[in-house]
Every structure is written in C-alpha cells, then in structure tokens.
Simulated scan of single mutants.
Amino acid sequence: MTIRAARQDELELLRTLESAAGVLFRSIGMTDIAEHPPPPLQLFEQARQAGRLWVTVDADDHPTGFVLVTLVDGAAHIEQISVHPDHQGQGLGRRMIGHVDAWAAEQGLPALTLSTFRSVPWNGPYYARLGFQELSPQKLTSGLTDLLAAETAFGLDPAERIFMRRSVAGQ
C-alpha cells in the first residue's frame, strides 16, 4: 500500500469512491448520509493544489482511499477520510491518519482534529482507539464551532456529532 498526493485526473474518481464508502451508513439506518452527494470537485481541487489531499493506491496505482485535510485554527483538520468498501478493514484509514500526522509534524502543527459521528462504530470509537480524544463544547475553537454550525445547518444532529483532537506525534 502506497500513499501519495492525489492527481488532478483522479478527483472525480475520489468523489465516486466517497459515494461508495458512504453505502455502509445505509446498513445502520443512516440512509440520508449514505445518499449524501460527495464533496464538490472544487473542494478536492483546492486541497490538491494546497498539498493536502492524499490517496492510498493499489499495486496498479489505482486509488483505494483518500484523506482531505484543511487547516482549522492552527491544526490539521481531517475534513474527509474514505476507503472504498473493497479495501476496508486493511488498516488504510489508520495509515492515512499516520501520514497526515507526519505531514502535520513537518508543518509544525501541534494537533489533528476531526468531526465524526459519536455512535457509529467505525467513527467515534475507531478514532478514540487511534488516540483522538473528544473535545467538550467548551474546548471547541472558534473554527470548530463554525464547522459544527455548518454541520447543523446541513441537517446533522449536533447531539450525534463529536469533535476530536490528538496531538501530533513528537509535539
């Protein structure tokens, strides 16, 4: 498994991959999430140009997963991380988070943050096993508060959303 920067000609494929990965939500009754359209192509392109979009690829250099990072209040915020269902359960998500951690350390960033579903087994509990800790509402930075407001406006239940943070290795 290799992690490399995403190429421009792969961006539409990453949107398709995101849609495929979302199907798991249907199996737990979260149909709205499963059917939600992937992020716009422009978001992928902005992240790619900024050097904050990476893919895992198979032996044929075909993307099997991706991680898209933004900067929020001085931390590397994992905006989206997805692995195609055919490649899930192989540690690709964990490896991509490790890659982002190393990148963040090189950038001098102190932490990784993300928002996720509290009760979905492959979300909140998974990230906790990777060292992320839930942030109380009082510990949310202004940028994370803005993200929560945007998620709520989008229709996500704020009671089911959590923000998590972990220190960057070596920081």
Rank of each mutant, 00 (worst) to 15 (best):
A47F: 13
A159G: 04
W122R: 00
L24V: 14
A102Y: 13
T64H: 10
G108P: 14
T141C: 05
L13K: 12
R48C: 09
A21S: 15
T116R: 02
L140Q: 03
P137W: 11
V100A: 06
T145N: 15
F132L: 02
K139L: 13
S19V: 06
T31Q: 07
H77P: 02
S115D: 05
Q138T: 15
L13N: 13
Q49F: 05
I162K: 07
E151S: 11
H36S: 09
L13C: 11
R129M: 09
D9Q: 12
E151G: 06
S136F: 02
I78H: 06
A169C: 13
A111D: 09
A50E: 08
E45V: 09
I97F: 06
G108H: 14
P137V: 03
D9F: 05
V55F: 12
Q80L: 05
L68G: 09
I81C: 05
R52V: 08
L130D: 03
V67R: 04
L53W: 10
G143Y: 02
G51K: 07
E12F: 08
F25S: 01
L140D: 01
H84Q: 07
T113Y: 10
Q8D: 15
P37L: 02
D157W: 10
I28E: 04
T2M: 11
T152K: 13
T2H: 12
R94T: 03
D86M: 08
V83A: 14
T113R: 04
E151Q: 13
G91T: 04
I28K: 01
R15M: 14
D9N: 11
I162D: 02
W103N: 08
F117L: 03
I97S: 02
V69N: 04
S142M: 15
L135M: 09
L147S: 06
I81L: 15
E12L: 11
L68R: 07
V72K: 00
G108A: 13
F154T: 12
T2R: 14
L130Q: 07
I28T: 08
A20P: 10
V100N: 06
E160C: 05
I162N: 05
P121H: 07
H36P: 05
E45G: 11
Q90T: 12
P39I: 08
W122K: 01
P63W: 00
G89Q: 04
E79L: 05
V57L: 14
L71W: 03
G22R: 11
V67D: 03
T64C: 13
A6V: 02
A5F: 11
L13G: 12
F117E: 03
G65D: 13
G91D: 11
K139V: 07
F117C: 00
Q49S: 09
T70H: 08
R94L: 05
N123M: 01
R95H: 08
Q133N: 09
R26I: 00
V55H: 13
D146M: 09
I162V: 15
F163G: 00
T145F: 09
Q171W: 12
